[in-house]
Amino acid sequence: MLGGQRMELSETGTPAINGVPLDRMMLALTDSGIEIGQSELELETQAIPGRDGVVDTSLTGPEGAAYTDNRDITLHLYTCGDEDDIMVAKTRLGALHGTIVTVGWRMLPGVYRGRLSVGQWDDLWSARGLCAATVDVTVSASPCLLGRVHTVQLNRGSQSIRVDGNRPAWPIWTLKAEPGCRSMTVASGGSVITVNTGDLASSGQAVIVTDPVGRKVTMGGVRHPVTLDSDFFPLSPGLTRIALWGCAGSMAYRPRTII
C-alpha cells in the first residue's frame, strides 16, 4: 500500500519484520541467517511441426520479462532467556502467523512483502528449565522488493521524471482539475488515462490507482469511470516523460526491484 505506512527498514541495519527489528521482538538470527529463495519463471512453450525446437509462448510483463512466482524468504531465528521471556517472544511472533508482513534490512533497496508462516519450535532445556528455542519463519513473498514511497509533484503540460528500481512501477495519481476543464488526462509512452469530470471540473479531484490489485478511480471518495481509450499503465524504470492535460497534481509510487 502507498502512504501512511511506518518505517519498514530497521535503522540499525538489522532485519526487521513490519519495521520492527528482531531484537525488539526478543529474537535473533541463528548462524544459518536468512535464505532468499529462487523465484521460478512462469514459462510456456509450444512445438510447431516443421520447425526445430519449440516456440516460447510465455506471457510477459510491460518490460518484456516473463512473469515470476513468489519466492520464499526464510529466517532462522532463536530466542533465549527465562521461560517468561521466551514465551513473550513466541507469542509476539505467533501473532503474525498467516498475516501479510514486510521483511527487510538496510542493504536491500526495499522490503519483501508476503504472508508469514511460523514453523515448528525446537525448545532447548537446561537444569533450570527452558532456556532457548529456535524456529524457522518463512515469508511467501512477491518476487520484487518494494522501495519507499516516492511522491512527485506534477504541473500541467509535459515534464520528465525519474523512476527508480529495475521493474515497472504502478503509480497512484492524484489529479486536480483546472477551472473550465471537463476532463483530466495523464499520458506517458503512448498510453493515456482520461477522467471526465463534467460539472465538477472547477473543484473535482480524482485519485487513480493503477495497480492491477485494487485498481480503481475515485472522485470525492466515490467510484468514477474512465474513458474507453484509457489504459492503467505502469511507469518504466529510468527517465520517463509525463504529460498532464486539464489538470495538475501528484504521482506516488513504490520502486520495484528484483535481485
Score class of each variant (00 low, 15 high):
residue 102 T to A: 13
residue 232 F to D: 01
residue 213 V to S: 10
residue 200 L to H: 04
residue 199 D to V: 02
residue 68 T to P: 05
residue 94 G to D: 14
residue 185 T to I: 11
residue 82 D to Q: 13
residue 246 G to D: 13
residue 116 L to S: 04
residue 168 P to T: 07
residue 84 D to H: 13
residue 259 I to V: 14
residue 28 A to C: 08
residue 112 Y to R: 06
residue 116 L to W: 04
residue 219 M to R: 02
residue 20 V to K: 09
residue 177 A to Q: 08
residue 72 D to H: 12
residue 56 D to M: 02
residue 7 M to K: 08
residue 149 V to M: 07
residue 171 P to A: 02
residue 182 R to N: 13
residue 115 R to A: 12
residue 100 I to C: 11
residue 60 T to H: 06
residue 244 L to W: 09
residue 6 R to D: 04
residue 245 W to Q: 15
residue 183 S to A: 15
residue 187 A to P: 00
residue 238 G to Q: 03
residue 35 E to T: 12
residue 75 L to W: 12
residue 199 D to R: 05
residue 236 S to D: 11
residue 227 T to Y: 10
residue 54 V to P: 03
residue 235 L to H: 00
residue 192 V to F: 05
residue 42 E to K: 07
residue 83 E to N: 09
residue 205 Q to Y: 00
residue 259 I to F: 15
residue 214 G to V: 01
residue 72 D to Y: 03
residue 166 N to Y: 11
residue 69 D to Q: 12
residue 201 A to I: 07
residue 13 G to K: 04
residue 189 G to K: 01
residue 168 P to L: 10
residue 240 T to R: 12
residue 1 M to D: 15
residue 167 R to A: 08
residue 50 G to K: 01
residue 73 I to H: 11
residue 52 D to K: 03
residue 250 S to K: 10
residue 144 C to H: 06
residue 23 D to G: 01
residue 97 H to N: 15
residue 195 V to Y: 10
residue 26 M to K: 10
residue 46 Q to M: 03
residue 234 P to D: 06
residue 15 P to S: 02
residue 7 M to L: 14
residue 125 W to V: 07
residue 197 T to K: 04
residue 81 G to W: 09
residue 62 P to D: 11
residue 205 Q to W: 03
residue 24 R to K: 10
residue 84 D to G: 03
